[in-house]
Nucleic acid binder design. Sequence first.
DNA 1: CTGATAACTTCCCTTTGCGTAACCTTCATA
DNA 2: TATGAAGGTTACGCAAAGGGAAGTTATCAG
Lengths: 131, 131
Amino acid sequence: MEKIYSVTELAKDLGVTPRTIRFYEDQGLILPQRAGTTRVYTHRDRARMILILRGKRLGFSLKDIKEFLDLYVVDTTQVEQLRVLVTKVRGRIAQLEDQLQAVQTSLDELREIERMSLDSLTHKGVDMNSV
Amino acid sequence: MEKIYSVTELAKDLGVTPRTIRFYEDQGLILPQRAGTTRVYTHRDRARMILILRGKRLGFSLKDIKEFLDLYVVDTTQVEQLRVLVTKVRGRIAQLEDQLQAVQTSLDELREIERMSLDSLTHKGVDMNSV
DNA sequence: CTGATAACTTCCCTTTGCGTAACCTTCATA
DNA sequence: TATGAAGGTTACGCAAAGGGAAGTTATCAG
């Protein structure tokens, strides 16, 4: 007997709202079976949702995630899928490395601004160092 | 003779579009004089725009920037202004430090995924290491 | 006088990822 | 039988920062 879920159950299980799951369906990321009009999720659907959420956590757009997941269906050998995954992951890594640089630069600049401001305040007899 | 600018000129000078400058005016960030209906920008306005763009570059929202710039008018001693600046800058620094952590974590995870995928591909006789 | 520019205003469009009604149906229970 | 919990389907709204088109006016050159 496989455990199955309703939207609400699955949502609770995954820490998202039912709205989110329905939205993903709207975007073509999951396609649960229906019992009449009611959505029914299997453990495979759950696994798929977990993949989706992981992708999101790593900063991929739903579009990217979909593009990747769509290969699941088609590609039985998984070779193409892995290839695409690696490509996307490398792209994302590059992005994050750039972002890291940008953040570092901003941090440097902000610390400089902080120093100069505190300096200015000191000259005006104000102290914010303990705040 | 002070150099003055039209929207288009100032935009070109600052590397933004006129739309952007008008938008900032809409948001209450700048208030150039008018010659009839035509906007006229002085070097002070230009300086203000540069401040705005710098704030943006450092990741502040237009709302934050406005809140800060508004003190320019009121606060002649600049003490309050500097105080707010330091507070905002510190907040932003904290944000960026968090972001740095998150980016690092994602990078680690993505590199792990890349490794495992490449491994998988190797077992299937595919090589992507040179790509 | 007639374009051609350049300014102006107004307003809708875009992206991303849902939140939040509003309104309908169905089942189970008090 | 009334009602309330769950499920479903539109469909509008939000946030941020502008983009872009429409339609009007003003000015300058030929």
